[in-house]
């Protein structure tokens, strides 16, 4: 499989404080990598290095085989979708203008193409067309997240970076958005890096999970591998609860004595 993103011997320090050292990782094309770790572990730093918002102190990053250092970063960023926490829409632009922001940076002329792209992406992320002249302040939290995703995807990038994009929405909306994102990943085959601090979200979305602590990689593996063979104490502690969660069909739930349905059933029996 082709490599989409490669970190080679990355070191990052602020003044004397080293936050990341000997960081090596290669992400295959089409992978959905969720990055998890406690706050301050360097997960956002790693993400922002991919689009050059943060420069490594030493080491190289290759995106699609090209060293980021030697490239016109502005041009490169346009091919990398970027969605951040709270999605941060431009408050003075309509939904349509927000989504067409990057396409407009890329090609100003072809207005028709951009218009169609906007409609296409609104449909894919599940926004109805009549919202396109609304401003961000006139949207619900969930709608804003959807616009944020559509904006990140509008120029059809082959890499998508997401930094806790669902951090600020309610549980129900988040569940819907996770399903949509999974579907979009499947549909487009795009490579996604997704930072989260919610282990269940990381396991549910990722085809690979990257666990980080104090700037180092603890484990980089598929979700099932992570659950079955946690590589370190840190990972073990992280997935402890998830290992005990069972996803049984409804009618078999009661067979598991840790399931919440058991107590209910017992109380029925004593009646």
């Amino acid at each position: 499989m082709k490599t989409a993103i490669e970190f080679k011997d990355i070191k990052k320090s602020y003044d004397d404080k080293v936050v990341m050292e000997k960081f090596n990782l290669s992400v295959s094309k089409g992978e959905f990598v969720t990055i998890i770790g406690s706050s301050g572990c360097g997960k956002t730093t790693a993400l922002k290095m991919v689009n050059g918002l943060i420069q490594p102190t030493s080491g190289d990053i290759f995106v699609n085989g090209e060293n980021f250092r030697n490239k016109n970063q502005t041009q490169l960023r346009r091919n990398i979708g970027y969605a951040i926490q709270g999605s941060v829409l431009f408050p003075h632009m309509t939904v349509e203008q927000n989504i067409s922001y990057v396409p407009n940076l890329l090609n100003k002329r072809d207005k028709e193409k951009t218009k169609n792209a906007v409609l296409k992406w609104m449909k894919i992320v599940g926004l109805s067309e009549d919202l396109k002249h609304r401003y961000p302040s006139e949207l619900s939290g969930g709608q804003q997240q959807r616009v944020g995703i559509a904006r990140a995807l509008a120029a059809s990038p082959d890499i998508l970076l997401m930094d806790e994009p669902f951090g600020a929405v309610d549980e129900i909306t988040r569940g819907q958005l996770q399903i949509e994102l999974k579907r979009i990943h499947k549909q487009t085959g795009i490579t996604i890096l997704f930072v989260t601090h919610d282990i269940s979200e990381a396991l549910k979305l990722g085809t690979k999970v990257l666990v980080m602590d104090k700037g180092k990689i603890e484990q980089y593996a598929t979700p099932s591998e992570l659950l079955q063979n946690p590589a370190t104490e840190f990972v073990k502690e992280l997935v402890k609860k998830e290992r005990r969660t069972c996803y049984l069909p409804e009618e078999q739930l009661f067979t598991c004595k840790f399931s919440g349905t058991v107590g209910e059933r017992n109380s029925h029996d004593t009646k």
């Binding site: 918002l53 990398i80 951040i84 941060v88 408050p91 940076l105 990140a152």
Partner: peptide, 18 residues
């Protein structure tokens, strides 16, 4: 102007002028 908005704009590949 909210720095998060500026970072988002930069991250999406806007030039300084843009």
């Amino acid at each position: 102007v909210d720095p998060a908005i500026l970072e988002a704009a930069k991250g999406m590949g806007s030039t300084k002028i843009q």
